[in-house]
């Protein structure tokens, strides 16, 4: 089984969104970076499949030079090698899908399963995986919370109100996954060391003109309410009850 997982480097924004002066990006000087929890579950799932049945897990990121950190983290989770499409620019979803498709076509052998997050953590476009599937004429199931592979088919579980919808599609296929699919492991120190020696295929790429073009970012109002302090410690309990009564939930 050959599996590709696509991951995107994003900042860990913490308690507050702060923009750069030109309003084009988040101020990230003091922030750490990660990938979406959805994508992390995607990588974990792929690694488990290959651990159980053999094969190869490849991780792909389109992003700046520093996205190498996220690729290394994915390889510490168990991915075998990485493709880094390097660009400092922000790409729209349509262009991102195009670049990923090109990278997949450039591979020596096709993938049996291509895994995306249901939506990227920062831009949340809900579409890159679906676009890649169409370009490659593959079936695509979105928002998975459960995946079982058997006999060349994928049984996919999607969460809906009060239950799960089940899909059953032939491989090769594209899936987009959500956090909760599994509980990703914490990489061990030896796994991190091994990750440093795994191969990364670095390709510089240049974005086409964006068709959904970011003009500027805006931080929504409403960060900075003045909370009414009901008290400190357990002595505040009677005040809390008064609030519960006022809200009609006591």
């Amino acid at each position: 089984m050959r599996i590709l997982c696509c991951v995107k480097r994003v900042p860990i924004t913490g308690g507050k969104m702060v923009l750069t002066e030109d309003e084009q990006a988040l101020q990230t000087r003091h922030l750490g970076f990660t990938i979406s929890p959805h994508e992390e579950c995607g990588v974990e799932e792929a690694v488990r499949i290959v651990e159980a049945g053999g094969g190869e897990v490849v991780v792909l990121a389109l992003g700046p030079a520093e996205a190498a950190e996220q690729l290394r983290e994915c390889m510490a989770l168990g991915a075998d090698r990485a493709i880094h499409l390097e660009s400092e620019e922000e790409w729209d979803a349509q262009a991102t899908a195009g670049a990923i498709v090109e990278a997949i076509r450039a591979e020596a052998a096709p993938f049996d399963l291509i895994v995306f997050g249901n939506e990227s953590a920062d831009t949340g476009n809900y579409q890159v995986g679906i676009r890649v599937a169409y370009a490659l004429s593959l079936p695509v199931v979105t928002g998975l919370k459960g995946l079982t592979l058997a006999e060349g088919r994928a049984r996919c579980e999607q969460e809906v109100a009060n239950g799960r919808d089940i899909y059953d599609v032939p491989l090769p296929a594209v899936v987009t996954v959500k956090e909760g699919l599994n509980l990703p492991r914490y990489p061990s120190v030896p796994a991190k060391l091994r990750a440093n020696r795994k191969p990364v295929d670095l390709k510089p790429v240049v974005p086409p003109a964006a068709r959904l073009q970011k003009l500027r970012l805006v931080v929504p109002e409403g960060q900075g309410k003045q909370a009414e302090v009901l008290g400190s410690g357990p002595e505040a309990a009677p005040e809390v009850i008064r609030v519960l009564q006022k809200l009609g939930v006591a």
């Binding site: 924004t13 831009t123 003109a209 970012l217």
Partner: peptide
């Protein structure tokens, strides 16, 4: 092109949510 989670449209320009609604993006759709 497709713009997900739009909150406002002004001709070819629009506002949409990023980060699950914690940040807005103003964009032009071509």
């Amino acid at each position: 092109p497709m713009a997900a989670n739009v909150t406002d449209v002004r001709g070819d320009e629009l506002t949409r949510q990023r980060w699950g609604g914690s940040l807005f993006e103003e964009a032009r759709i071509e």
